[in-house]
Amino acid sequence: MDKLLQALLNGLLLGGFYGVMVLGFSIIWGVMGVINLAHGEFLMMGAYMAWALFRAFGLDPFASLVIVMPVMFIVGYLLQRLILNRVIERPHLMALLVTFGISISIANIYKVVYTASPRNVPVSYNGSVELFGLTFPIVKTLVFFVALSMMFILHLFLQRTRLGKSIRAAAQNKNAARIVGIEIDRVYAITAGICIALTGAAGAMLSPTQAIFPFMGAPFTLKAFTITALGGLGRIPGALLGGIILGMTEVLVATFVPGIGTNLGVAVSFVLLVVMLIVRPQGLLSGLRPMEEVE
C-alpha cells in the first residue's frame, strides 16, 4: 500500500513538472496552430541558463527563474516577430520546417558553445523529507508547487486581463479578432514570449534533477506532443491533467513491472497517445478551440 501511495506521489510530482513543461508547447499550438518542434531546445536553453548562472554566481536554479524567464520571454517574442509570423499564414508544413530547423540550429550552437559534456546543477538541498510515511524528494516537490503556481497565475492572466482575453480571442477566431481591432502579430509575439518563458522556466527547474546536454531536447518535444494530445490543446487544466496521467503511468509501470518496467513505461505512454488519437482526438478536456478548426 505504501509502495502504491509512494508511486502515486512520484507520478503526481512528475506530472506537475510535465504540466508546466508542456504548457508552452500546448498554447503555441492552440493559439497559433504552430507545432513547435524546437520546444525541447528552448527547455534545454533554460536549463543551460540556470546552470551557467549557478556556476558563475552560485545562483539557485529557482532564484534564477527571475532572470531566465524575462530573457526567454524576449527570445520567444523575437522568434515570433522575426520568424514565425512570416510563416504562420502559410501551409502548416512551413512552420514545421522552420521550427525543425531552429531546433537543429540551437542544439548544434549549444554543442559548440558548451561542448557536449553533460552538466548538472548540484544544489545542496536535493535530498528528501519523510512525511506521513512517504518520501518527498525536495527538489521535485518544489518544482511541483512552483509549476502549479505558474499555471494558476497564467490562468488568471488569460481569464482576467485584457491582454489575456485578446490572446483567447485571437485563438478562437483570428479574423473576428482582427476586425475588432486586436493587433494579431503583437498578440502572437506576446503569446510566444510567455510560452517560451514558461518552457525556459521548466528547463531551469529541471536542471538540478537531470543531466543537461545539447541534445536533451528531442525526447521532451515528443513527450509534449503526447501530453498535449492527451489533455487537449492550449488549455491549462488539460496540460496538467495530461501531464499527471503520463507521469503516473510512467512511474506506476516502472515501479510495479519488474525487470523491464522503465522500458515499458516509455512505450506505454506512446500507446496511450495512439489510443487517445483514435478514441478522443480532441483530448480529455476539449481544447481552447476544437482541433478540427485549427488552422
Binding site: 512520484n10 519488474p258 523491464i260
Partner: peptide, 21 residues
Amino acid sequence: AVETYPKDVADVSGIMSKFKD
C-alpha cells in the same frame, strides 16, 4: 534484482525505489 532501462531514459526513480525496498 535486475532492471533494464531504455537508451534515452530521463527518470530512473521507479528503478531506484524498487531497489530501496
